[in-house]
């Protein structure tokens, strides 16, 4: 369910004009945090991003790293330096990977919070954390928070299906 939150947040930023997909448009990036159950594809297409967990497709860039390294990246650590230290594995174009990292840095969601909850269900109150991010327009922030809060209450109840497509 977290990838739904990520997708909403990224597209919100794109819509607000805060992020330009630019060279990422048309690329599919696989992104996995090896120590957490976070394994997603970012499909950048038609000027928007779909975040999926589906593993059936041709990937342009494959990025694998540990969550601690990811957090370091978000805090501004240099990607090439981490690559040199073998802390990140990238198959494919490193420049494209860098563009994705830049994008994720801009979200500025409390990603640590998202990651820490990744294994469990997301709860409505967590969606509230997203609000921190969207400093631009207070009304839109409130609207997005309301929307996510309402939406996430129902689907997230389904623990039974946690590993089955959510």
């Amino acid at each position: 369910m977290q990838h739904f939150v990520l997708e909403q947040a990224l597209n919100y930023l794109i819509d607000q004009g805060g992020v330009n997909l630019g060279a990422l448009n048309g690329k599919v990036l696989h992104f996995a945090l090896e120590d957490l159950a976070l394994d997603v594809n970012f499909i950048c297409t038609n000027n928007r991003i779909f975040v999926t967990t589906d593993a059936t497709t041709a990937i342009d860039v494959d990025i694998k790293l540990k969550s601690s390294v990811f957090l370091a990246l978000l805090q501004g650590e240099d990607l090439t330096e981490l690559l040199r230290q073998d802390k990140i594995i990238i198959h494919g174009d490193v420049k494209t990977a860098q563009l994705l990292v830049d994008l994720l840095q801009q979200i500025d969601i409390d990603l640590e919070e998202v990651l820490s909850k990744y294994i469990g269900d997301i709860f409505a109150h967590q969606a509230g954390k997203l609000g921190k991010t969207f400093k631009k327009s207070k009304n839109s922030i409130e609207a997005l928070k309301d929307e996510l809060t309402t939406l996430l209450v129902a689907p997230s109840k389904s623990n039974l299906f946690k590993d089955k497509g959510i």
């Binding site: 089955k164 497509g165 959510i166």
Partner: peptide, 22 residues
């Protein structure tokens, strides 16, 4: 479709399939 994933809602009584044409 190049991608398809589904999200179960209400315990799987309903599912949303999302397909993307790349």
């Amino acid at each position: 479709f190049s991608f398809c994933e589904y999200h179960n809602l209400s315990g799987g009584i309903v599912a949303l399939h999302k397909g993307i044409k790349v």
